[in-house]
Design a binder for these strands. Structure first.
Lengths: 247, 247
DNA sequence: CAAAAGCAAGAGCAGTGCTCTCTTTGTTGG
DNA sequence: CCAACAAAGAGAGCACTGCTCTTGCTTTTG
């Protein structure tokens, strides 16, 4: 499949890529709100109407960028995961892998704030995300699922307690996404995922200004706590809470 | 202060309010991206240039709406907190208060998704939030700080362990926002705050579509775990993790 | 080789944010 | 009390946007 049949088709994919590249450039410079089809066309030396041969509307261009962004961050997560699996001399512990992947996502977000805003900020085009985005969007999730499955298979997990009313939902979610995992950890995992994005979003969107200064250290601590919530075991033994004063 | 000096000043505050009301209406209908000064003016029966007597630019109108939204969600949180403090026959436990406030924030978000997106989605106008927003933005935070301080004063807290590298930052944050709290809980509290918003954002922005169905139950469980992370004590005794299989 | 399909160019429409000028209308000092 | 002043609305206009339509040109295809 995907054999290029002639000069026309070759030109088409090149122009399509050029449009997306230029759009990404403007996105990084001014944000999604100021991305203009006419400006993209102008910069590429073509007239604005010609651009509609490639993308039927501005929103379609944006969703193409969204899909690419999901793929890029998913790629970053998968790469970090692979790297954390073969560190000499021994493979990293599961907690360390979890932290490594989370840090990779954060670093991608710091490097591409506007693309990050495109996928995890307010949805700009309409209300519901187009169907085309759900595949790439879930790549990240499966990386974390993989880590926890791995931990479950080898070291075991500290399965968190589960409210009775949430049990059927947990079993449905487990059947859908992680059949090998104890149902109780799946909601915790999904929650941890959204909470990880919450942490990153607050940093990217400036909510931590004048609040958190040591961003990296703060993030690592929070992410480790997240992993503990999911049930990943800590190799260190001293992670017991101390009781504070009280009346 | 704030005495109305004449018909002119009275008209001014009325028109200003009318503009914001109409803008909020359009915001709720079509989202921030499609909010148009001209449409607001048209709906109010005035010409667009007249509107610039009240707001010097579209962005200024938006930041006014942002401030109002922060205030509204802060108000919702404070109201829920007060209500949870005097439920008969005994005042609710601190964990229950935490959950009540979190649920109030979530419900406000569900009722006003576009206003929520305005404050916790991608920042639309520029990069940095205007100084005017930081006050109203922190109202919510102080509600949660208050709950934890209260718990510390009466029942005590399960102070979470703190990485050594984060200790100076924790002490600085504690000195700035919660001098009465053990420094170790302050980063956990800030993290929990951002993670709470992460949970709500995922639901509002559709990231939980086809993933989480029982949204309310899922949210309550996640928020209770968040509270436990911060150190709030659970009155129930059965919250110990069970160890899963392993190899 | 001719028909068909893909593509670029240009004009044009409706809408936007924002800036001018001009007139009207409240407020206020002499 | 009335003239000087400042605030407010009206309207025209500029530069820009997304998008559509028609008109030629070029590549592909039967």
């Amino acid at each position: 499949m995907s054999t290029i049949r002639g000069a026309r088709e070759r030109a088409r994919i090149e122009v399509t890529a050029a449009i997306k590249d230029e759009a990404r450039k403007q996105l990084a410079a001014d944000g999604a709100a100021k991305l203009s089809l006419r400006a993209v066309a102008r910069e590429l030396g073509m007239v604005s109407s010609a651009l509609y041969r490639y993308f039927p509307s501005r929103d379609e261009l944006l969703t193409a960028l969204i899909v690419d962004a999901y793929d890029a961050v998913g790629e970053a997560a998968e790469t970090a995961h692979r790297a954390s699996c073969d560190v000499p001399p021994v493979p990293a512990a599961h907690l360390a892998r979890w932290i490594a992947v989370a840090c990779a996502v954060r670093e991608w977000a710091l490097a591409h704030p506007h693309e990050y805003a495109l996928i995890y900020g307010s949805p700009v085009p309409g209300y519901t995300a187009p169907q085309a985005t759900v595949g790439p969007a879930s790549r990240i999730g499966f990386v974390f699922i993989g880590i926890v499955e791995d931990a479950h298979r080898t070291d075991g997990l500290a399965v968190p307690p589960l409210a009775a009313e949430l049990r059927p939902e947990a079993e449905r979610m487990a059947a859908d996404f992680a059949p090998d995992l104890p149902p109780a950890v799946v909601p915790a995992l999904v929650a941890a995922w959204s909470q990880l994005i919450g942490l990153i979003s607050f940093e990217i969107f400036g909510q931590f200004n004048r609040v958190v200064e040591a961003r990296e250290a703060f993030f690592r601590q929070a992410v480790a706590d997240l992993a503990r919530n999911v049930g990943l075991l800590d190799d260190r033994a001293d992670r017991t809470a101390t009781r504070s004063a009280g009346a």
